[in-house]
Simulated scan of single mutants.
Amino acid sequence: MLPSDDRELAGNGLAAARKLLKIVNDLLDVSKIEEGRFGYNFEQTNLVIFLSEILKNAQAVAKEYDIKLYFDKGAQQQLMVTIDPNRLGLAISNLLDNAIRYNVKNGSVTVNIKLLTDKPFAEVAIADTGIGIPPENMEKVFTKFFRAENVIKRETEGSGLGLFITKNIINRHGGTIRAESVIDRGTTFYFTLPTDSRLIPPKEVGLGI
């Protein structure tokens, strides 16, 4: 068995390697998105169960940060949508990860789902009780490599690519994403998904960059 100091060094090295791998994977994903070759495999899925599973998987990280996770599904028990589970799972995990890491101690994250009444879309909201995003930064949150100044001051790790990737995944599903935020009160991300698969773009298109 390694001495305690060596175990700590080994643990720190492993954590650093995982962070580096995450950044490399994000860069590769961005490259594929920009070239229109990220690749999607759509299938019909119960969005309620899908979100429940993602929240279950996020519990360990939430516990590490002393954050409570809540799922408000309202009257929805079954809401069928056509998605790529792997890609959409990545997008939602990015949003949850931010909501947990940029929260306050003993804070919370609430996921809400509802059917829109005026158009054939479901809307998912992910609300946190965290540090918020400065108003002057709101229009930049979905751009590559952007990190808000108050996030940088917290010395949290991140590539600044997660929300860019998330936005493009949501758009490829035929949905939209937006954010509302109040400093020191929290941030809510809203994204939509069509309940009619005919509204999903017929093919993946590069960004022409």
Score class of each variant (00 low, 15 high):
D6P: 06
I200V: 10
I209M: 09
A62W: 01
F146V: 09
A10K: 15
R101F: 03
D97N: 14
T156W: 15
N25P: 01
E123I: 15
R87N: 12
I54P: 00
E204D: 09
D29Q: 07
H173M: 07
M1H: 10
V124Y: 00
G186K: 02
K144V: 08
I209E: 13
E157Y: 15
E139I: 12
Q78I: 09
R178T: 08
I92G: 01
K153M: 14
Q44S: 13
N168D: 04
T166K: 04
E43R: 12
G130H: 06
L28E: 08
N150D: 10
L163I: 05
L193Y: 00
N106K: 14
V124Q: 01
P135G: 02
N112D: 07
I100L: 08
A122L: 04
K68W: 07
A10P: 03
A75M: 05
S181T: 11
D97S: 10
L88C: 06
P3D: 14
N94Q: 13
V24L: 15
R7H: 12
N46C: 09
L199G: 07
E155C: 02
E64A: 15
I200F: 00
I177L: 06
F146C: 09
L2E: 08
L95T: 04
K19R: 13
I183R: 10
F42M: 03
L116N: 08
T129P: 02
T110G: 01
I170S: 05
F145A: 09
A60I: 13
I83W: 03
G89L: 05
F191E: 04
V24N: 08
E123H: 00
S4D: 14
M138G: 05
D5Y: 11
R185H: 12
R198A: 10
T176G: 10
K56T: 11
E43A: 11
I177M: 14
G130R: 07
K144R: 13
F145T: 12
D118I: 02
L28I: 13
T166L: 08
I92D: 06
G36E: 03
S31R: 15
S52Q: 13
F142A: 01
G175T: 10
I209P: 02
S181F: 04
F142T: 07
N12P: 00
T188Y: 01
M80K: 10
G36D: 00
R154N: 07
L47H: 03
A75K: 11
I100E: 05
P202S: 12
A179S: 12
I113N: 05
R198W: 00
N168R: 11
Q59P: 02
Q78D: 08
A148T: 10
E136A: 11
G174T: 00
L51W: 02
G208H: 03
T45A: 05
P120F: 06
D84W: 08
L20Q: 11
K19Q: 14
P194Q: 06
I183M: 15
I131Y: 08
D84F: 02
I131F: 01
A17Y: 13
G174V: 00
E64H: 11
S108H: 03
V124F: 02
G130T: 04
V30T: 11
I170V: 15
A58R: 10
V61R: 14
L55R: 04
V104E: 09
K153H: 13
I133R: 02
I183Y: 10
E34L: 07
